[in-house]
């Protein structure tokens, strides 16, 4: 075993595998995207079609529904691997469980969250978001949504061995999502009301960075617990 080990190649391999699985049969990619589209279109039925009201709540609706779509898909992030035994293999990889957790979070964000961000401007159009706010909607989602995947992964790892752990996971994760939601919507609202969105974006970035520091380790610790 003298060959130098390429951890980067392992990392890439795990990311590619998970993206592939998310978009094949039974994967969460299409599910989360469909949920996002349908749930956002429910709001005009709920609050009425007045364009001013919709424009006022557009950013909040899109952020909240994106957050819920993320939550729905996180349910299976580690559980599928736990159930079929591949979590054992992942844990024994030379990459280490922290790296594996980070790879899987990265794949989740790429496969499930990125498509939501791509269609978000379209939904914003339906909700009549003020024209100056579109780029900040996309920007706030790009900066803030990694925190959703990261913090959510902690909840997913903690509930991996719990039957029907999805509901429990929401209870654990949703309180942690509040800062991301506040700063994300704050940035878009500031932009649509001629305010300065930059402080919000900076804080949003700080939340994402802090999550990046904590989440892979906490998730790996929780997974190790589940394997025992």
């Amino acid at each position: 075993m003298t060959k130098p080990l390429s951890t980067a190649a392992i990392f890439k391999g795990v990311v590619a595998r998970d993206i592939r699985l998310a978009w094949s049969q039974g994967g969460t990619g299409t599910m989360a995207l469909s949920f996002f589209l349908i749930a956002v279109t429910l709001f005009p039925f709920g609050v009425g079609p007045e364009t001013e009201i919709l424009a006022r709540i557009a950013a909040g609706v899109i952020w909240v529904v994106a957050l819920l779509a993320c939550l729905l898909s996180l349910d299976r992030l580690f559980q599928a691997d736990y159930e079929d035994g591949s979590l054992d293999d992942l844990a024994l990889s030379p990459l280490g469980l922290v790296g594996i957790a980070f790879a899987k979070i990265t794949a989740h964000w790429c496969a499930t969250i990125l498509p939501l961000i791509v269609v978000a401007p379209l939904l914003a159009l339906l909700l009549n978001l003020p024209s100056g706010a579109y780029q900040f909607l996309v920007l706030s989602l790009l900066i803030g949504s990694p925190a959703l995947s990261l913090l959510g992964a902690i909840g997913a790892a903690l509930t991996v061995s719990v039957r029907r752990g999805g509901v429990l996971m929401s209870l654990l994760v949703l309180p942690l999502y509040i800062p991301t939601l506040i700063f994300g919507v704050g940035a878009v609202d500031a932009a649509s009301m001629m305010g300065n969105p930059l402080p919000h974006l900076a804080l949003l970035g700080a939340v994402s960075l802090l999550s990046l520091l904590i989440a892979p380790f906490a998730a790996a610790g929780a997974l190790r617990l589940a394997l025992e």
Binding site: D84, G85, D89, L92
Partner: peptide, 17 residues
């Protein structure tokens, strides 16, 4: 882990692949 191969009760294979 680089010296061992382990296989458990569950096969760890993905049905769609």
């Amino acid at each position: 882990s680089e010296d061992m191969i382990y296989s458990g009760h569950q096969h760890g294979l993905k049905p769609v692949l």
